[in-house]
């Protein structure tokens, strides 16, 4: 992964099919594979794909995202997941106790402006999206600040088995949550340094020697 790969553009041919199945970011015409995006091609053992270098977040079932509550409805909450598609959090996916909907103002559980780390529990073909707090890691996030990065850069910010994000957390003494939707929540001591490190990774995600540069930025 650390190896530098060439950038491809939409419509550019990608070699290396050899029985691999098509992943994201590519399309096929006849026997030939083309890129859909400006991105970095990834050819692993059985899949060929292109990771876009820009673009908005599109919801995928199972993704863990950071959302901001933007509306309290009768039976749940509207959640902004940094996507053109808004998500809905139904009461049953958010609260364990019995809620008498006729009598309860459910804003006592979640209110407009609350920040939640949650899981996409349902995404229909037409992109109607449901999120859920029924996940061990799901929680409401208190205080802190939020920054947004290109969603496809999130894996690089997390690093192999979480190595990069742990390094940033330790060196800046910050709590950090990363949503696959490109939203990052930070609370703690040296937020400025944490932001700088994250934005550097976002900018230089496809270059070599990134880990070393981040280490020196954080004073390792």
């Amino acid at each position: 992964m650390a190896e530098y790969r060439d950038v491809v553009i939409p419509g550019e041919k990608i070699d290396g099919r050899k029985g691999r199945k098509l992943g994201n970011g590519v399309y096929q015409e006849g026997e030939i594979i083309f890129s859909k995006f400006v991105g970095v091609p990834r050819i692993d053992e059985n899949e060929i794909s292109v990771i876009p270098l820009s673009g908005v977040y599109l919801p995928n079932m199972g993704d863990k995202v950071i959302g901001i509550v933007e509306g309290v409805e009768i039976s749940g909450w509207l959640v902004d997941i940094n996507s053109p598609y808004a998500a809905f959090l139904p009461i049953a996916e958010a609260v364990d106790e019995f809620v008498d909907m006729a009598r309860t103002d459910i804003s006592r559980y979640f209110d407009v402006g609350d920040i939640v780390f949650c899981r996409l529990s349902k995404v229909t073909k037409n992109k109607t999206v449901q999120v859920s707090m029924r996940d061990p890691s799901a929680r409401k996030l208190y205080g802190g600040i939020i920054i947004k990065v290109t969603p496809t850069k999130i894996p690089r910010i997390i690093g192999k088995a979480g190595s990069m994000i742990s390094l940033i957390k330790n060196k800046t003494k910050c709590d950090i949550y990363t949503g696959q939707n490109g939203v990052i929540w930070i609370r703690g001591e040296d937020k400025a340094k944490a932001i700088e490190a994250i934005l550097t990774i976002e900018k230089e995600s496809h270059t070599m020697g990134l880990t070393e540069r981040i280490e020196s930025l954080l004073g390792v």
């Binding site: 553009i9 939409p10 083309f34 859909k36 995006f37 270098l53 820009s54 673009g55 496809t152």
Partner: peptide
């Protein structure tokens, strides 16, 4: 469009 990360068949 390409810079916006829009999926395209071609430029």
């Amino acid at each position: 469009l390409a810079a916006a990360g829009i999926p395209m068949e071609d430029l």
